[in-house]
Each structure stands twice: as C-alpha cells, then as structure tokens.
Amino acid sequence: MSDNELNLDFIDAGIDISVLDDLTFAGKPGVLERLGPAHFRSKGFSFMGFLQTVYDHVVDQMMNSPFHHRKEFP
C-alpha cells in the first residue's frame, strides 16, 4: 500500500469509487460449470448434485430479493 495512492480524505471518496460501476456478471458461466466435477466425490452422495441444488436455491433467493432490481431513487 502506497501513501501516494491511498485516499486520505476523511469524508470524501477518491475518483476511483466509480470504477466498479460497470462491473457485470451477466453472461458469465456459472462457477460449478467452470469447476467441473470434484475429484473427491464420496460414494453414495452426489456432491455436485447437492451443490447445484444449493446454487439454484441461492440464485432463486437472490432474484426474488425485494431490492434486487431497485431503480433510481425518485
């Protein structure tokens, strides 16, 4: 960490506070898809199947979150 780069202002953020505004995850392949099957699978238990169910459930919860698609403050 360099003091030259660190924002020292107590109240106001530096200009790079906007740098994440255009960061998007749309269109990226899901993590499980990229990881592929785990090699430490247990017999009699579908590790990936279970994990996929968890992922689907989390996504569903997020998409139905009341503030997920918030618009601008009027």
Partner: peptide, 29 residues
C-alpha cells in the same frame, strides 16, 4: 436508493456498491 441523497456520506456509498456487487455475484452463480 442507488443515488444516495447528500445526507449520506461517501462511506455509505462504498459499502452500498459492494453490497450490490455481492448480490449480483450471487444472483449469477
């Protein structure tokens, strides 16, 4: 609100930006 009023300092905006990042990351697996 995404556009925070002037009564909120940038410190609120910082965590709000990251909160939305987390929410989007989760929504996109």
């Amino acid at each position: 609100p995404i556009s925070l009023p002037s009564s909120c300092s940038d410190s609120v905006r910082v965590w709000q930006v990251l909160a939305r990042l987390v929410q989007n990351a989760l929504a996109h697996q």
